[in-house]
Design a protein around this nucleic acid. Structure first.
Lengths: 343, 343
DNA sequence: ATGGGTCATGTAAGCGCTTACATGAGTGTA
DNA sequence: TACACTCATGTAAGCGCTTACATGACCCAT
């Protein structure tokens, strides 16, 4: 058993002041460089800080200065391959700007029925809100109180004035479907769209439709199916369609992870990719470039979204003007799973 | 341009008290349920809270009550497939216990030369410290001040008394090498160990050595090579060895991610897995069960580590006794890459 | 009636900082 | 020599809460 110790009282700014023979105001000044302090005095203070191993108390500082130096990140869930690059971007930019990161998961079971603690407001200087982690009511409250917040991958409901950082979904989808049709002559392209009501998902569907239309291929609604963005749901969904005997010559999965599910289902059914069926995804997650066959997909600048969102948020916090909408470009990545040969 | 608004002053507990016609103490009492309050009074307070959309100020609360209700997580980096399940576990358990999560990345470039803000102490009620994110000096300070902290995957330097949550590395490694030797008759097994000085890595190496010894296979040090845990380094390292013409019939990669790098290098060199060369990993990351060939590996209960670590930390915070060391069991997962046929 | 409870609530003292304002010493100019 | 500055530092008032303690009101068994 680890021994339980009573922690010796932590030194406060007053202890430092006393040891250095100055007032607490002076200590605060040298710590924050907020005013001129005689070099010699400053040295004495720094020595005292060192000697006592003093660390300012964050909450006290926050209370007095009304800033927390931390950013809140609201996510449905923290794991999932998709969030990796996003987190990396957010974390990098936050750290560069001198902020800590407070992560809040919303899809988690609430603490024994108690409503989750009132948001990260008051705890943070600003909020990054991922799609669907906050309802319209909360969003509108944020907007109304002028609390700095930026939305990720989600256009705010009308009347709510919060900046958005998202990606070019429709065009990306459009181009990859074009590729399937023009280069590989596909005509019956199964589209696995993501979760119902998901904004990205909707745009990708539009891109799909537009491409078909542009190539005079009639829309066949039996070729559009739901199934979420993850591999398990996708796998199941596809297995079902396969069972029903649905005919198609290509699959456009709304997310790379779903594409893996499709691949698994296809493989199990003995259908070869890309020889019999072309397969493409969306996102260009890391595994897309190492799986077999290498996945043709649309690269979504996910890390960039995180980076940019933090920058916008920081501008907002500093009360600098910001653009209301950032749409980062996507890029078509041709590899093998569509039937092309990678170099 | 988004309009910049000056936020209306947030309501404080005093506003609520006034509106409800009671003292702030009473408001605090109904909010925290720390004392009996007349049901009717409580109702008035709740109504006032609702009407003003009041949210307690976290920092003020912290300052007064000396608790933050947040847990700090210190990591070298936040992305990387390995951290996903870990984060999930931590986040789940933290949320269940009613804590927020403050994430601190240590491998990041420090804010323009300024030493990173003094740890997450004072900002959190306790700290989760991942391998190598804190030096011995800081660890010993934590231990000395009695600040609640638990180490992940890292035995503390002697004299430092902090609980550890880690996994059974040596045994896992031992068993998978045994499998290679006993079932597939491998004799020259290349071992890609992880980063130098990494604790897990060391244990896995021991397991490898023990297995060879138990089977009377002499240790050939040219078969042990460094290279880190990630796919890029592993790929390079292997490509080099292949160039040098090193002969081996199996590769034990110290991490699944490294195994992918090995696979890529092998594939590029035209060596087939598992027909010519058996390949196994360690971790059982998600992609291990969907890559081709399916990866034989050792399952590390990573999410469980996160879960358990939070539980231990919470006990520490509550000043309940805790075991000093938790070693979670690993499990051999036989799939295809070793040469077995998955069902 | 009366003293000792229990209950419900109010009063006020911090928690450890930041910062507006006051003070006083030194410097330069008329 | 006196006046107006600048510089360095101290004083003290909060920031928005929690909580020990004080205060009444009310009830019951003497």
């Amino acid at each position: 058993m680890t021994t339980i110790k009573t922690s010796p009282a932590r030194p406060t700014i007053a202890d430092v002041a006393e040891k250095a023979g100055v007032s607490i105001a002076t200590v605060s000044r040298v710590l924050n460089a907020t005013a001129m302090v005689d070099e010699e005095t400053a040295l004495r203070v720094r020595l005292a800080v060192e000697a006592l191993d003093y660390r300012p108390h964050a909450a006290a500082r926050t209370l007095a200065s009304r800033k927390t130096d931390t950013l809140g990140l609201l996510l449905p869930e923290i794991s999932g391959a998709f969030f990796q690059p996003l987190l990396r971007g957010v974390e990098t930019a936050a750290s560069e700007a001198g902020y800590d990161l407070l992560v809040h998961t919303t899809r988690n079971p609430n603490t024994r029925g108690m409503p989750r603690r009132p948001l990260a407001e008051h705890n943070t200087d600003g909020l990054l809100v991922f799609t669907d982690s906050l309802d319209a009511r909360e969003l509108s409250r944020l907007s109304n109180t002028g609390f700095p917040a930026v939305l990720l991958y989600q256009t705010p409901p009308s009347g709510i004035d919060l900046p958005v950082v998202t990606i070019e979904n429709k065009n990306g989808a459009r181009r990859i479907v074009d590729h399937l049709i023009e280069v590989h002559g596909c005509r019956r392209i199964l589209f696995l769209r993501g979760p119902q009501g998901h904004e990205d998902s909707g745009w990708r569907e539009q891109g799909y439709c537009e491409s078909l239309q542009a190539h005079n291929i009639p829309l066949d609604s039996s070729l559009i199916t739901g199934g979420g963005f993850n591999r398990h749901e996708a796998r199941q969904a596809l297995a079902q369609l396969l069972d029903k005997g649905l005919a198609f010559d290509a699959v456009f999965a709304g997310a790379d992870d779903a594409a893996v599910g499709v691949l698994l289902a296809l493989r199990q059914a003995g259908r070869r990719v890309p020889d019999e069926i072309a397969l493409v995804g969306f996102d260009d997650q890391e595994f897309a470039s190492t799986m077999l066959p290498l996945l043709t997909t649309v690269r979504a600048p996910t890390e960039q979204v995180g980076l940019e969102a933090v920058r916008v948020l920081v501008r907002l916090i500093r009360k600098q003007p910001v653009q209301p909408r950032w749409v980062l470009p996507t890029e078509l990545i041709i590899r093998e799973s569509c039937g092309c040969h990678s170099h």
